[in-house]
Design a protein around this nucleic acid. Structure first.
Lengths: 208, 208
DNA sequence: ACAATAACCAAGCAATCGTTTGCTTAGTTA
DNA sequence: TAACTAAGCAAACGATTGCTTGGTTATTGT
């Protein structure tokens, strides 16, 4: 009777709780979201949440984890069909990242909106999860054909900062994740752009 | 006896309260900072704060306002001695912005760390203040000699996003605001860099 | 049919929240 | 010295917070 895994009952509302929490965490932030808010959104009573999650912070960690997994999968899928060109690969990753961040999934948004230092007890966990994800961009930037004097680390952090700031100003309809990814990469291609300038003007248009 | 302005007593602790609040808002965020935290940090009792500020939100607005003013002044001063070159001017502005953000002044950090949507009642005020400041970068980016197809608005938002993300990863000693500004601008100079490549390799070193 | 348990409700706990109130003290002005 | 006020203390207000506890329902395997 090791019985750790709970047998799946028909209606497992765990996911419902996670969905509602993700939406609320995006809308009001973690600290400003009360367990009663979540309970109300799921049609339960506050205490009932604690059957599924040990604490409010555990709930955040679960949402955060799900967010990291989804955005990771999105990027990985994009990279799997991106071809060999380093710049195209980076742009594809950015497009997937932005699509997750600006699209319907609240989970990814929680990951970049939640400041780990706001949740001291879970800080290390969250930072670790995020770093694990961002390692993808480390690899992508290291693979770029860049002059030696370019600080790839700064380039990566620049891109990540720029992308994670988009939820503040993005307006659906005026921009698209694909369009932004193209402009972002275009802006940092730098010297490369001189050589092979308009080579992929057509590549950009068959997406988004 | 219109007497709206309070006569200055010797020890006006308003600034002390603002300083302590700014530090705490940076460390723990606005929502997670209690009025008791602020009171303890200033050596007062919680209620005494309300002699100086009508509400906790008003206190935030005051800190935010001070932050916007300081970072604006920093950028304006930098621009006043930056010369005519549009790229140099932009880089100087970025350097000043980063210096404020990563330096000793907590006020500037509050401005970029506080998500206005976390404070619904003061949201419009904060957004307005921030936009007024960021207008400087709109002008700077519009002045850049760029190919027509470059979206200056996205370039600006990219830079701002990248800069405002630096507090997350910046390590004093490993980087400097001036160094980062140089790298940031270098990364987005793009096609320009081909033409006048190493012209200002010496310009960068006499600062920071 | 029966025991087991997943899933939830109902109620309330102690702690903390932002804020208010009434009063005191120190300093200024007349 | 008397009137006034800036500044803050002491104490508590009602509301909200995350969470616990004990009981209830409904589904499940046997």
């Amino acid at each position: 009777m090791t019985g750790l895994a709970p047998k799946a009952r028909i209606n497992n509302r765990r996911e419902l709780i996670l969905d509602a929490s993700a939406a609320l965490f995006v809308e009001k932030g973690f600290v400003s979201t009360s367990t009663r808010d979540i309970a109300r959104a799921t049609g339960m009573l506050p205490g009932s949440l604690y059957y599924h999650f040990a604490s409010k912070e555990d709930l955040l960690v679960a949402v955060f984890q799900e967010g990291v997994q989804r955005i990771s999968e999105g990027v990985d899928v994009a990279l799997a069909t991106a071809g060999p060109d380093p710049w195209v690969r980076l742009q594809s990753a950015c497009e997937a990242h932005l699509a997750m961040l600006l699209g319907a999934s609240n989970y990814a948004h929680v990951v970049i909106r939640t400041l780990p230092s706001d949740v001291p007890d879970a800080e290390k966990t969250l930072v670790g999860l995020r770093r694990e994800y961002e390692a993808r961009f480390t690899a992508l930037c290291d693979a770029l054909p860049l002059p030696l004097q370019v600080d790839r680390s700064v380039l990566r952090l620049m891109l990540i900062g720029a992308m994670n700031h988009t939820p503040v100003w993005f307006r659906k309809g005026r921009d698209t994740p694909a369009g932004l990814a193209r402009k972002f990469i275009g802006n940092v291609r730098g010297a490369q752009a001189c050589a092979d300038a308009s080579v992929e003007a057509n590549f950009e248009e068959d997406r988004g």
